[in-house]
Simulated assay, not measured.
Amino acid sequence: MHRSVLLLAACCVAAVAVADVPKPTHAVTLLSTTTSWDGTPYRYPEGTPRVTGMTVEIAPGKQTGWHMHHAPSFGYLLSGELDVQLKDGRVKRMKPGDTIAEVVGTLHNGVNRGRTPAKIVVFYAGVDGQTLTTSPEGPPPM
């Protein structure tokens, strides 16, 4: 009987120890694509690779202005609402948690039609010395 109690106690201690072990890492793919959201295949620029990440915040009722990117980029909307529109009228509507494979070499405009700031984190896969964003209306908006 004494041996059974000791065995049961040892099992309980082992169970508690196992319960305290951190769970394994859990990864969720947010986006995996070979094309931008308009269906255009991505091509990486030539040169020394440089990955750049930034957050962009658009106030309610405001917009980024028409601009284009020169390298593939990926965005993840953290908060707010964002409409990304192309000159041909196509629109990608985004809500928090949505992703976007941004267009390259194509003019587009981000519009916040919501009542709170739209905050998006963007990662660019460009090259050293490359301008990430240009605008036909003047200096780059970002």
Score class of each variant (00 low, 15 high):
P22E: 14
P22I: 15
K23V: 12
K23G: 12
P24M: 12
P24E: 11
H26M: 12
H26V: 14
H26D: 15
H26S: 15
V28P: 00
V28R: 15
V28T: 14
T29M: 13
L31W: 06
S32E: 07
T33Y: 08
T33A: 14
T34H: 12
T34P: 01
T34I: 07
T35K: 11
T35H: 14
S36A: 15
W37M: 07
G39A: 07
Y42E: 06
Y42L: 09
Y42T: 02
P45H: 15
P45K: 15
E46V: 14
E46M: 13
E46K: 12
P49L: 15
R50I: 05
R50C: 06
V51T: 04
V51W: 05
T55V: 09
T55Y: 10
V56A: 08
V56N: 05
E57F: 00
E57I: 09
I58G: 00
P60Q: 01
K62E: 00
K62S: 07
Q63N: 14
T64I: 01
T64Q: 03
T64M: 03
H67L: 06
M68D: 08
P72T: 06
P72C: 08
P72S: 08
S73T: 06
S73I: 04
F74N: 03
Y76E: 04
L78Y: 05
S79Q: 04
S79L: 07
G80L: 03
G80E: 01
L82E: 02
L82T: 02
Q85H: 03
Q85N: 04
Q85S: 07
K87A: 13
D88E: 11
G89M: 08
R90H: 15
R90C: 14
R90K: 14
V91K: 02
K92P: 00
K92S: 09
R93H: 10
R93T: 08
R93V: 07
K95A: 06
K95N: 04
K95T: 09
P96G: 08
G97L: 06
G97N: 01
D98A: 13
T99L: 10
T99S: 11
A101V: 03
A101M: 04
V103E: 05
G105F: 12
G105T: 11
L107E: 15
L107P: 11
N109P: 12
G110M: 05
G110Q: 02
R115N: 13
T116Y: 09
P117Q: 00
P117V: 03
P117T: 01
A118Y: 01
A118L: 01
A118R: 00
K119Y: 00
I120E: 01
G126K: 11
D128V: 14
D128P: 04
D128Y: 13
G129D: 01
L132G: 08
